[in-house]
Computed example of a mutant assay.
Amino acid sequence: MGKSKVYFLQALASFILVLFTMPLGHALMIIMEKTMTPEAVHYAGFTMGFVGLVMVIVGVFVKGDTRQTLWGLIGGLLFWTGWVEFLFQYYAHRFGVQPEIENGVVVTKPEYLILPASFGFWMMMMTMYIFSTRNGCNFITWIQKRLFRERKNQIVVQPMTRHTSIVTFMEVNMILWASYLLLMFCYDKNFLGDHHPVTYLVGVGCFIGALFIFQKQLYIASWGANIRMSVATVVVFWVPIEILGRINFFKEFWTHPQEYAFPLLCILAGFLFLLGFMWLKGSKKKRS
């Protein structure tokens, strides 16, 4: 069996499950901003982040790799939306950060303009992962091999204590964080700009990279591991979607939930169906 068998169902379903969280997350933020007062949004956002953290912790004590992964995935997304994006929004509004406006239209919200200031914190986390832990991230493992070469096994001796829910939670947040930093760097006219050729190359490179990651997913039999790999596949795949939306190549319907309620409800139904399906799959032990 080994790598000769392709698990297309697991790979495709896992990819779609995680992919659906992208438009749903954007739509949720827009709906909250349009239907709630600014004060209520901040309270709701903080509560959302707390609920996400609790879900991740609960996932540590849940039995089953797939279910632990799902707890970490949903909890991580709520954590990122509530305690990262909404907190950046709160402080951006509180201290009067102005949005980036082109032709009378807001192209970058204030919270995303100040997000690149967190680059040092991201590098701090990456330094810990690169020098202090052996893990399953292909990107980090590649850096370790190139950086440490024959001394890799001496410097990176063992993994951290492994809790699948925490692993998924950290993967979600670190990859989302990295993608936002990359996009904000590309969009910044002091560096490149959204119509710069390098920005387009970044989009093309991420699309090709997502195909390679998905190819690896095809050989993963476990639902939990497939979902975790899908986090990387989807976030990398979403980078060119963000870039194309930025240059108005197509209309991002998820940023207009009131106008496109039906397709978003269909996506929500599909997401809940896949979530329930994988939850039930997680209750069955895979036969060897």
Rank of each mutant, 00 (worst) to 15 (best):
K286P: 00
R146D: 10
L73K: 02
L28E: 07
L78S: 03
F119W: 13
A117D: 05
I16G: 01
G270N: 04
F139Q: 03
L147P: 04
M170Y: 12
V97G: 01
Q217T: 06
G96T: 08
L113Y: 05
F20C: 09
Y129K: 04
V97S: 02
I143A: 05
Y187S: 03
N103W: 06
V84Q: 01
E259G: 06
W279D: 03
M29I: 15
Y180E: 09
V234A: 05
G282F: 00
L264I: 11
K281A: 09
F8T: 14
M36P: 01
H195M: 14
V54Y: 02
L181R: 04
F148I: 08
G203A: 06
K286W: 06
T199P: 11
F191R: 08
K34Q: 15
A117I: 08
G245P: 06
L9I: 14
Q215W: 13
I175T: 12
A27I: 04
V6D: 02
M36I: 03
L147N: 08
V106M: 09
M174W: 09
L9Q: 15
C266T: 14
Y129R: 07
V97A: 06
S283M: 14
C186P: 00
V156A: 06
F185T: 15
A27L: 03
F131M: 08
T81W: 01
A40W: 13
A44V: 12
T199E: 07
F250T: 11
H256F: 13
F169Y: 14
T164G: 04
L53H: 03
F207H: 10
A44I: 10
D188A: 05
K189Q: 13
L275Y: 13
V18F: 06
I114C: 07
F121I: 14
I247K: 07
T69A: 12
F271P: 00
G52Y: 01
Y200I: 07
A269H: 08
G282D: 03
L73G: 00
F79P: 00
D194M: 11
Y112E: 05
Q158A: 15
H256M: 14
I74A: 08
F95S: 06
L113A: 05
